[in-house]
């Protein structure tokens, strides 16, 4: 009798239902239909001067053609006291995938706060910049999909600006635009800040041309430059607009300003 009940399901007949769920991983590649990133648009920009650094970003957040909100800041104070980061001298701007941007901001802020707690002094921008690079690089196989710009005042009191790619490559620069309208703003900055393609009048032609030498710009000029860059970007890029948030870092602290931009 026992031989009749082999325990095996009838050949070709309906099997046990749970037999139909796979018990081993399928061979070959599996397709994920979930894509963990999105682009929230917007643009950021940073310019460093002799004794200040300015960071700026528009406040529009988008999802495709939709506007999520007209006010989502991309600039964050890092370190400093308490949740408002009072007394901070470092600003991080992030553009790209906003959720990653927020996560990155919180990681860096916590690290900088722990640094102060453990060492009893504020972190320098140079150290903070290197640490940020490491945070990004450590997640290079599942990157924070953001372009970060870090601004502050260095140990000599000069304006410091660092820009990053999503996997942590970084360098110190005079100016940098990032995000949706970077390709619109950056050439403008090259021309107006680093005086690219500008020559001394009457210096001749061809090889005789004398390139104009770039020098640190005064604060007022930089603020105007930033505002012009963004008002122009708003005209030509649909993901940029609504408001312009600026943070000006000097040895005395961080000044924050907000200027409305076109909402169309």
């Amino acid at each position: 009798m026992a031989s009749v009940f082999t325990g095996a399901p009838p050949q070709g007949g309906p099997g046990y239902s749970f037999k139909q769920t796979p018990t081993v991983a399928l061979s070959g590649e599996r397709q994920h239909s979930f894509y963990p990133y999105t682009d929230n648009g917007g643009s950021t920009l940073g310019i460093s001067g002799a004794d200040f650094t300015i960071l700026a970003g528009d406040t529009r957040s988008t999802h495709g053609y939709n506007i999520n909100t007209r006010y989502a800041p991309k600039l964050f104070k890092i370190g400093g006291e308490g949740p408002e980061n009072k007394g901070s001298r470092i600003v991080l701007s992030v553009v790209g995938f906003a959720a990653d941007g927020d996560a990155l901001k919180e990681r860096l802020d916590t690290i900088v706060k722990m640094y102060k707690y453990q060492h009893g002094k504020s972190i320098t921008v140079a150290a903070c910049a290197q640490r940020l690079s490491h945070i990004l690089y450590n997640k290079r196989f599942f990157p924070y999909y953001v372009h970060a710009i870090l601004g502050g005042i260095d140990e000599d009191g000069k304006g410091a600006l660092y820009s990053y790619d999503p996997v942590g490559s970084y360098e110190r620069e005079q100016c940098r635009a990032a995000g949706a309208a970077a390709s619109l703003i950056m050439p403008f900055l090259d021309n107006q800040v680093n005086l690219k393609n500008q020559y001394e009048p009457g210096s001749g032609t061809g090889h005789d041309l004398q390139a104009k030498l770039a020098q640190p710009l005064p604060r007022k000029d930089v603020e105007d430059l930033v505002r012009d860059a963004f008002t122009s970007a708003v005209e030509r890029h649909i993901e940029v607009g609504d408001g312009l948030q600026m943070m000006i870092i000097t040895k005395d602290g961080i000044e924050e300003t907000f200027t409305p931009l076109k909402k169309d």
């Binding site: 949740p83 919180e106 916590t110 706060k113 722990m114 707690y117």
Partner: peptide, 15 residues
Amino acid sequence: MKQQSLASRLTYDRA
């Protein structure tokens, strides 16, 4: 305590 305090601020935005 420092870690727990920061964690509370991070996960709940609460002191």
